[in-house]
Amino acid sequence: MEPMSTKILVTVKEVAEVDDEFEISGLDVDDRYLEYDLNEWDDYAVEEAVQLSEASDDVEVVTVTLGPERSEETIRMALAKGADRAVRVWDDALANAGLLDATTKADLLAAVVEAEEPDLVLTGVQAADDSFGATGVALAERVGFEWAAVVNDLDYDADANVSSVRRELEGGVEELTDVEGPAVLTIQTGINEPRYASLRGIRQAQRKPLDVHTLDDLGLDASVADSPVTLTSMYEPESESDAVVWEGSPDETADELATFLREQGVVEG
């Protein structure tokens, strides 16, 4: 019998990280103070998918990213780690929309799920920058897939299309759950050890397909970007800090801290 082929779609976001010192201009941190990287949670999701594809024949791993051209560097990184091909969705209508909330992102990703018809979708638990923590489950609802949020262990039965997962709850408790496929799983950090891209992988990634789709290509109308949820301000939170900051060279500050700990009786001598 022919082995059944399995398609895993991994959503991959390029996230911005903010420098220690920064300025806000308008509704975002000024671009001079931002560095872009593959979202930490998605790195684990890519690794999980690639490990599944390495463990059996006939598993295809496709990544999907909603993002501008700049994000192709990050997408190539996911390809270099072993994904087979990538889809990038972008459009002037999205660039002009400002904040893409989780519902909007789910609507957009749903069009890709409908086109690709994956057996399994892996997303990150959250994006490190805007941290809605909601896109994966919103996507599942949108496409009628089953789902599980905050998965830190996955045992995937491709024949039955059932995922036996551990959901990481609060306080060191894990919930063991079986999820019927097709499903969306939101992947938690620590589920595996993400690999570094090898030089060979990076070279190969250049030749892997990376298809770019506009809204029109996906059969979507520009109104998909309209949302009742809009970002109206960004600011540095008023510091709630009343910390005593010890100033000086490292030996001076270390001395202050040591003196404090001795005075508190935390350490002897």
């Binding site: 909330d101 989780a102 519902t103 789910a106 638990v125 941290s131 809605f132 923590g133 909601a134 896109t135 994966g136 489950v137 919103a138 599942a140 609802e141 949108r142 789902w147 599980a148 949020a149 905050v150 959901r167 990481e168 709850l169 609060e170 939101t186 949302s227 009742p228 949820v229």
Partner: peptide, 24 residues
């Protein structure tokens, strides 16, 4: 609640009811 379980149903409920959702 924006708890691990909250995030396991809130986006689905909001979707099913077609309500805008803001988390956390």
């Amino acid at each position: 609640p924006n708890t691990v379980n909250g995030l396991d149903y809130a986006p689905a409920v909001a979707g099913a009811l077609d309500l805008p959702l803001v988390t956390d």
